[in-house]
Nucleic acid binder design. Structure first.
Ligand code: MN
Ligand code: MN
Ligand code: ZN
Ligand code: ZN
Lengths: 135, 135
DNA sequence: ATGGTAATGATAATGATTATCGTTCCATCC
DNA sequence: GGATGGAACGATAATCATTATCATTACCAT
């Protein structure tokens, strides 16, 4: 499958957002990003941050996951993966499992459902928090 | 595993909410529920609807899925399943797949992650909307 | 340079959910 | 049977993430 990102103008603001995301392994929300950009001297209006994130995602340059309260963005230059989120410390771990992926598609196919995207999130305690638990 | 729902008082309002959910196959949001209750003569304050839904869920009497914009509730008296959501008509289809479930747990176990819950949602076009598409 | 379109930024608006607070309901104890 | 303290309600204000407005600015192509 060939992805053809619609041509967008890489303005200074969009470039700053993209750089911030691409040079990190974090899953950013709009506010964190705006604050971080501001701290690094590159202050961008919050509305522009939201618009920039949406535009960059449409262009396929970044990806997002929709969590309960907010949307979080991450770099798009890694293979597809899903997430495990620690309900204690908030850390996000990634995982990929080819069999799970293909089983999803086959289940959908059985139902005549044409999948365009999916999101699998597991909640629980990460290793660190599980250990720290037994006080 | 034995589930012990904390004892809650089944007030008239909570009962009305529970009945509405249990006698349907829908995935309700708070507003739809309040409106429907109002239509059926059983009008309940919107704040009470929100509180009732949260309380009933904690007690294990209903379940929820968190979608992008809002939370939707459904009856808890069926086996665990996940969802496929049509991005054209909004319909929600359910599916269950034991292998996917167990693979999830094994992936988590590998990472030392203690899973307490998960949510798998696929987005795309349902059979009906796929067919109606070719105009 | 100039006109036109896209992007930006400050701010208002929106929509779902939660917080507040005075009132009402209930179970329990004289 | 009535007093009483806590739980639940309902109306409404507040919150929070996101989107809409709109005047201003930047960029592109004649
Ligand atoms: Mn990720
Ligand atoms: Mn369901
Ligand atoms: Zn943790
Ligand atoms: Zn559909």
């Amino acid at each position: 499958m060939i992805i053809v990102p619609s041509m967008i103008r890489l303005t200074a603001q969009r470039q700053a957002i993209l750089d911030m995301i691409n040079t990190s392994e974090r899953h950013w929300d709009a506010d964190e990003l705006a604050r971080s950009l501001s701290d690094s001297g590159q202050s961008i209006g919050i509305a522009t941050v939201y618009r920039g994130l949406a535009t960059l995602e449409e262009a396929g340059l970044i990806e997002s996951i929709q969590l309960a309260d907010k949307k979080r963005y991450e770099r798009a230059d890694k293979a597809h993966h899903d997430h495990m989120i620690c309900t204690a410390c908030g850390s996000i771990e990634e995982f990929a499992h080819a069999t799970i992926e293909s089983l999803q598609l086959s289940v959908a196919a059985e139902k005549g459902f044409a999948v365009s995207g999916h999101q699998l999130v597991m909640f629980g305690l990460c290793r660190k928090c599980t250990q720290g638990e037994q006080k």
